[in-house]
Amino acid sequence: LTVHVGNVTYHFDNPEQAEEWAKRMAKKYQGQIHVKDGQFRIE
């Protein structure tokens, strides 16, 4: 699973971990989480 934050990409084996990280990053950067094809993108 991949989480994109700006132009930085993080890889996770565990979906719960990826989702948790995406939520934390979205809160930190006050962005929206977009989920597409098993990838999380924070914008």
Rank of each mutant, 00 (worst) to 15 (best):
L1C: 15
L1K: 09
L1T: 14
L1G: 13
L1S: 14
L1I: 12
L1Q: 08
T2R: 08
T2H: 09
T2L: 11
T2K: 07
T2A: 09
T2M: 09
T2I: 10
T2Q: 09
T2V: 10
T2N: 05
T2P: 01
V3W: 02
V3L: 04
V3A: 02
V3F: 04
V3H: 01
V3C: 07
V3P: 00
V3Y: 02
V3E: 00
V3R: 00
H4F: 10
H4Y: 10
H4W: 13
H4A: 09
H4I: 14
H4T: 14
H4P: 00
V5E: 01
V5R: 02
V5L: 09
V5S: 02
V5C: 15
V5H: 06
V5I: 12
V5T: 01
G6C: 15
G6A: 07
G6W: 09
G6P: 01
G6N: 12
G6Y: 09
G6E: 04
G6L: 08
N7I: 08
N7V: 07
N7P: 08
N7Y: 11
N7A: 10
N7T: 11
N7H: 12
N7D: 07
V8H: 12
V8P: 01
V8Y: 13
V8E: 07
V8Q: 10
V8C: 15
V8A: 10
V8N: 08
V8R: 14
T9D: 04
T9R: 08
T9K: 07
T9S: 07
T9G: 02
T9N: 03
T9P: 04
T9I: 14
T9A: 10
T9L: 10
T9F: 07
Y10S: 00
Y10F: 09
Y10C: 13
Y10Q: 01
Y10L: 04
Y10H: 03
Y10E: 00
Y10N: 00
Y10M: 03
Y10D: 00
Y10I: 04
H11M: 08
H11N: 06
H11K: 10
H11A: 06
H11I: 10
H11D: 03
H11R: 10
F12H: 00
F12K: 00
F12E: 00
F12G: 00
F12M: 00
F12A: 00
F12C: 08
F12P: 00
F12Y: 01
D13W: 07
D13Y: 06
D13C: 15
D13M: 08
D13N: 12
D13S: 12
D13R: 08
N14T: 13
N14V: 07
N14D: 13
N14P: 00
N14S: 11
N14A: 08
N14Y: 08
N14M: 06
N14G: 04
N14H: 10
N14W: 06
P15E: 08
P15F: 14
P15S: 12
P15D: 05
P15W: 14
P15R: 14
P15C: 14
P15L: 14
P15A: 12
E16K: 13
E16M: 11
E16I: 11
E16P: 02
E16T: 11
E16W: 11
E16G: 08
E16R: 12
E16S: 10
Q17W: 09
Q17M: 11
Q17L: 12
Q17I: 09
Q17P: 01
Q17A: 13
Q17V: 10
Q17F: 07
Q17T: 10
Q17G: 05
Q17R: 10
A18F: 08
A18K: 02
A18C: 10
A18R: 03
A18G: 06
A18V: 04
A18T: 01
A18L: 06
A18S: 01
A18D: 00
A18Y: 05
A18P: 00
E19T: 07
E19L: 15
E19C: 15
E19V: 12
E19M: 14
E19R: 12
E19G: 05
E19D: 04
E20R: 13
E20H: 07
E20N: 10
E20V: 07
E20C: 15
E20S: 11
E20L: 12
E20M: 12
E20T: 07
E20Q: 12
E20W: 14
W21F: 15
W21G: 00
W21A: 03
W21H: 02
W21I: 01
W21L: 02
W21N: 00
W21E: 01
W21Y: 09
A22Y: 04
A22T: 02
A22V: 06
A22R: 04
A22G: 02
A22P: 00
A22C: 04
A22Q: 01
K23W: 10
K23F: 11
K23H: 10
K23L: 11
K23Q: 09
K23T: 06
K23V: 09
K23A: 06
K23I: 13
K23N: 07
R24D: 04
R24M: 13
R24N: 04
R24I: 13
R24F: 13
R24V: 10
R24E: 08
R24A: 11
R24G: 03
M25H: 02
M25R: 01
M25W: 07
M25K: 01
M25Q: 03
M25G: 00
A26V: 05
A26E: 01
A26N: 03
A26G: 03
A26Y: 05
A26W: 06
A26F: 06
A26H: 03
A26D: 01
A26R: 04
A26L: 06
K27H: 09
K27F: 10
K27P: 02
K27V: 10
K27S: 09
K27L: 13
K27T: 10
K27W: 08
K27M: 13
K27E: 11
K28A: 06
K28I: 10
K28V: 08
K28F: 11
K28M: 09
K28T: 04
K28S: 03
K28P: 01
K28C: 15
K28Q: 07
K28H: 09
Y29F: 09
Y29D: 01
Y29W: 11
Y29T: 05
Y29I: 06
Y29G: 02
Y29K: 02
Y29E: 01
Y29S: 02
Y29C: 15
Q30G: 15
Q30W: 06
Q30H: 14
Q30E: 06
Q30L: 07
Q30I: 05
Q30F: 08
Q30D: 09
Q30R: 13
Q30T: 05
G31L: 15
G31S: 08
G31M: 14
G31T: 09
G31R: 04
G31I: 13
G31A: 14
G31Y: 07
G31E: 04
Q32M: 08
Q32N: 06
Q32T: 14
Q32F: 09
Q32C: 14
Q32G: 04
Q32I: 14
Q32L: 08
Q32P: 04
I33Y: 05
I33Q: 02
I33L: 11
I33R: 02
I33A: 04
I33M: 05
I33S: 03
I33F: 08
I33K: 02
I33H: 03
I33W: 07
I33E: 02
H34F: 14
H34S: 13
H34L: 13
H34N: 09
H34M: 12
H34D: 06
H34V: 15
H34Q: 11
H34R: 09
H34E: 09
H34K: 10
H34T: 14
V35T: 05
V35A: 04
V35G: 03
V35I: 13
V35K: 05
V35Y: 15
V35C: 15
V35Q: 05
V35E: 05
V35L: 11
K36L: 12
K36W: 11
K36Y: 12
K36D: 09
K36C: 15
K36T: 12
K36F: 13
K36N: 08
K36E: 13
K36R: 09
K36H: 13
K36M: 11
D37Q: 02
D37A: 02
D37E: 06
D37N: 08
D37P: 00
D37K: 03
D37V: 02
G38T: 01
G38M: 03
G38P: 05
G38E: 04
G38C: 15
G38Y: 03
G38F: 05
G38N: 07
G38L: 05
G38D: 06
G38S: 03
G38H: 04
Q39H: 13
Q39G: 12
Q39I: 09
Q39R: 04
Q39D: 11
Q39L: 03
Q39M: 07
Q39A: 12
F40L: 14
F40V: 09
F40M: 12
F40Y: 13
F40D: 04
F40N: 05
F40W: 14
F40Q: 04
F40K: 04
F40S: 04
R41K: 07
R41N: 11
R41Q: 11
R41D: 07
R41P: 05
R41S: 10
R41F: 15
R41A: 07
R41T: 14
I42K: 03
I42V: 10
I42E: 04
I42G: 05
I42M: 01
I42A: 04
I42Y: 05
E43P: 05
E43A: 07
E43F: 12
E43G: 06
E43Q: 06
E43I: 14
E43N: 04
E43Y: 12
E43L: 13
E43R: 07
